[in-house]
Design a protein around this nucleic acid. Structure first.
Length: 818
DNA sequence: ATAGGGTTAG
């Protein structure tokens, strides 16, 4: 400041007349008031001109002239000011806005109108630019009104600014109205609208607008420039269609824009988004001149596509070519380490970032937190969060998201409350992250409260929030609530549909799953998830015909090579008993994962092809796939059906000791079943009592069934009484126990069971089975008179009964009959 | 005076 004054004094003494920009520059420091005093003593006209531009000092200047030189000078100044005011006011507004003094810029604008100076097209253009940066669109809208009133809306550069302003504030419709009502459209106007669409994620619209532009451009009124190419490339990156992207790329080459750094960076970014890192790298390599942004975009491309080694390599290469990494570079590097969950290198870069002083940046800080939370190191993520100087909504969201894999909804909600205390407004990310924390452990109460908040903030119509709500409610078996949440979503996406369909499928509401699948087809294409869910439903129904149709449909939509769909098809066919079709699908799958292997092994096991199941298990291990808990269910099932007792014991031990898999209810049921079927009833009972599931009724019932087969009434009585103790309302156990006592002529016990049954109020649940013929379901309930079936089925059934009696199967059915 | 590239979250 002192230096400035010295310099000024020097100039004054020399009698130099300062020109306008120089004096303004000199005055643009806090020494202005001192300068005023000096100016009072020295009469430098240019000086006062510069000062008079500053609205806040204008009055002071006038007063100064009034006091020192006399009223006349002051009046002169004022008159002069009004003479060149439009330009000076406008540049004053612009200066203030650029210096970050938005309030003063707005004040200038109203003051100039108050003193009767009419804004011109430059003033309005500047003002529109300011309104674009404002938090609120209200001021911008009233400015738009003024522009319309004063008749400035026909200027295409003002219209461009308005389009940009509206689209920045998510008002694409308003932007479109401005675009549509501007008769003379130049390249900038088209570009503003294209960018506006792209910014609001309406990439398809942006691309269509571009093609519309090309059609109109035949008259040669304007031409596509490199700005437009970059914008369109950006939009291409947002649609899942590499074909369009490639043709725009070719078009850019044709127009000779491939050497433009901006264009090249957009192409790199676009290909990275498509997952074509190699193409992106090719463009990067071919660039004649690269700036830091180009390096950053390539590093980011690698990070996005999980090529973390390449990203790090590029970081070092960048340094060796004497570029100084910036915040963006570090952000991308951290992302690369986050996707690789490499906290060792992550810490190394953390240190580097601290040393370089990059930690003040919100992006870097947030990326650092995210890196730690992706490494499941929530404590360090919390620490990084606490150490951040400036936090924004994204930083809060990142922490809340960090909690969700652990289901730590309490901490997530606490962070959310902090966010509200900071006067921030949650967005869809915040709420859906909170909801996924809640659904992890089924925290329904807290989840419902978050639901209330999402309604309060108008975010329940958002697809991500809606999807999370559907997830939470489905997890808690509340499909009605899930459906309500789903229906609040304005534009459900493919995943939304998949969510509600799978929710129905998992909660045993197959009819609803199918209903919503059909509804979805009216507006959305099915994806691998919705198809898998539907196949699961059809598998559970053993709906053969429908399943075949769905398989044909899968082929039609081109998802037959998908790993999830393929596995579901394998499962569906094997549940329908069509093991050949199942194995055909399995063999033709181009890619298999552990789920596919599991489906096929389970399919073989369930259909009694134990040997094939075990062979497949061997093959799976040979190909390097690691068996999971589900694999062993299939294997133990296969052993159980084939009576391979020692193999079963062997695989069970292998699972526990080699693969460190904790035995689940299913595994224990299989083991008890295996031992029981083979007649090792004592061993089965001991196994069960020693297992974690000794109070699980279903396993005891499977042991009871084994006792029945082996006609061991002593153990059977013990086991059945235990079953009654665990499940006093299960009618089948009463019936069975009663039968056993009856077979041993223990009539008093039979009577006791009968009384007990009446006391507890148990009624026998009717047995039920069904078959699916030509897409129709025929349900049979025991003891009914076949009223629901057709003639053909009734006749066939009667024949079957006679045949089975002749084959003396009836003797087997007669055991323990009441 | 209006328009274009890379950076954080699922």
């Amino acid at each position: 400041m002192k230096e400035d004054m010295k310099f000024l004094r020097h100039l004054w003494k020399q009698g130099t007349i300062l020109n306008y920009p120089l004096s303004l520059q000199l005055l643009n420091c806090s020494s202005r008031l001192c300068a005023l005093k000096e100016a009072k003593a020295n009469q430098f006209h240019s000086m006062t001109t510069a000062i008079s531009l500053d609205v806040s000092l204008r009055e002071n200047v006038k007063q100064m002239w009034d006091n020192s030189v006399g009223m006349a000078k002051g009046r002169d100044l004022f008159a002069e000011m009004s003479k060149w005011n439009v330009v000076s006011w406008t540049s004053m507004i612009s200066k203030n806005a650029k210096g970050g003094f938005t309030d003063r810029a707005l004040e200038c604008f109203s003051q100039m109108q108050r003193v009767g100076v009419e804004p011109n097209e430059m003033t309005f253009s500047t003002m529109v630019g300011i309104c674009r940066a404002l938090r609120n669109i209200g001021y911008g809208m009233s400015l738009h009104c003024l522009i319309l009133k004063k008749g400035f809306s026909c200027h295409s550069f003002i219209a461009s600014g308005l389009i940009s302003m509206y689209s920045k504030h998510d008002c694409v419709n308003e932007a479109w109205v401005v675009f549509n009502e501007t008769p003379e459209r130049d390249a900038v106007l088209w570009n503003s609208m294209i960018v506006g669409y792209a910014q609001n994620n309406l990439n398809g619209e942006a691309i269509s607008l571009f093609s519309m532009m090309l059609l109109k451009d035949q008259e040669g009124i304007f031409s596509v420039n490199s700005f437009i190419i970059t914008s369109v490339l950006k939009a291409c990156g947002g649609v899942n269609c590499i074909r369009i992207g490639k043709s725009v790329h070719n078009y850019a080459i044709k127009l000779n824009y491939s050497s433009d750094v901006f264009v090249a960076v957009s192409i790199i970014d676009m290909y990275s988004r498509f997952g074509s890192v190699d193409r992106a790298r090719h463009i990067f390599n071919q660039m004649g001149k690269r700036d830091l942004v180009a390096w950053n975009s390539m590093i980011s491309g690698y990070a996005q596509n999980c090529y973390s080694t390449e990203a790090i390599e590029l970081f070092y290469q960048l340094q060796s070519e004497n570029f100084l990494p910036d915040e963006s570079t570090f952000t991308s590097v951290l992302k690369a380490l986050a996707v690789a969950a490499n906290s060792v290198l992550g810490r190394f870069f953390h240190a580097k970032i601290i040393k370089g002083g990059y930690l003040l940046d919100v992006f870097v800080g947030t990326a650092l937190m995210d890196m730690y939370s992706k490494c499941l190191d929530i404590e360090d993520a919390e620490r990084a969060f606490k150490e951040m100087q400036r936090k924004n909504l994204v930083s809060f969201n990142a922490l809340i998201m960090g909690y969700s894999p652990f289901g730590r909804y309490k901490e997530a909600i606490e962070t959310y409350i902090d966010l509200l205390r900071e006067n921030m407004r949650p967005d869809a990310f915040t709420l859906s992250a909170l909801l996924s924390s809640c659904s992890e452990l089924g925290a329904l109460l807290e989840g419902t409260e978050v639901h209330a908040h999402s309604i309060k903030f108008g975010l329940d119509s958002n697809a991500s929030v809606g999807n999370s709500l559907v997830g939470l409610y489905c997890k808690c078996n509340l499909t009605d609530n899930a459906l309500k949440a789903f229906e609040s979503v304005t534009t459900p996406n493919t995943m939304s549909w998949a969510g509600i369909i799978s929710g129905f499928a998992l909660n045993g509401e197959g009819e609803n799953a199918l209903k919503y699948f059909d509804k979805m087809l009216l507006s959305e294409k099915p994806n691998e998830f919705s198809l898998s869910s539907i196949l699961k439903v059809l598998a559970s129904w053993a709906a053969t015909e429908h399943g075949r149709h769905m398989h044909a449909y899968v082929i039609k939509v081109g998802l037959e090579s998908d790993i999830f769909v393929g596995s579901s098809l394998v499962d569906m066919y094997s549940k329908c008993g069509m093991i050949e079709d199942s194995s055909k699908v399995f063999t033709s799958m181009p890619k298999k994962n552990v789920i596919s292997w599991n489906s096929m092994i389970m399919g073989y096991a369930q259909n009694g092809f134990s040997q094939k199941a075990l062979c497949l298990f061997g093959e799976m291990k040979k190909l390097g796939a690691t068996p999971t808990s589900v694999t062993f269910i299939g294997i133990l099932l296969a052993c159980s059906y084939a009576g391979l007792v020692s193999k079963g014991r062997h695989f069970f031990n292998m699972m526990v000791s080699d693969y460190r898999i904790l035995p689940s209810v299913e595994h224990c049921t299989c083991m008890v079943d295996l031992l029981g079927r083979a007649g090792h009833l004592d061993e089965a009972e001991t196994f069960l009592l020693n297992s974690q599931f000794s109070s699980e009724p279903s396993i005891w019932k499977s042991l009871l069934a084994a006792c029945r087969v082996h006609r061991n009434s002593d153990i059977a009585i013990r086991v059945a009484e235990h079953c009654l103790h665990l499940e006093p309302h299960d009618s089948s156990t009463y019936v069975l126990l009663s039968n056993i006592y009856a077979s041993k002529c223990l009539w008093a016990e039979v009577e006791r069971i009968r009384i007990l049954m009446r006391e507890v109020g148990v009624e026998k649940e009717p047995g039920c089975s069904w078959i699916d013929i030509r897409n129709s379901m025929y349900v049979f309930i025991s003891d009914d008179r076949f009223h629901s079936a057709n003639e053909e089925i009734v006749t066939t059934l009667k024949t079957l009964i006679v045949q089975s009696k002749n084959a003396s199967f009836s003797s087997m059915l007669g055991e323990f009959r009441l």
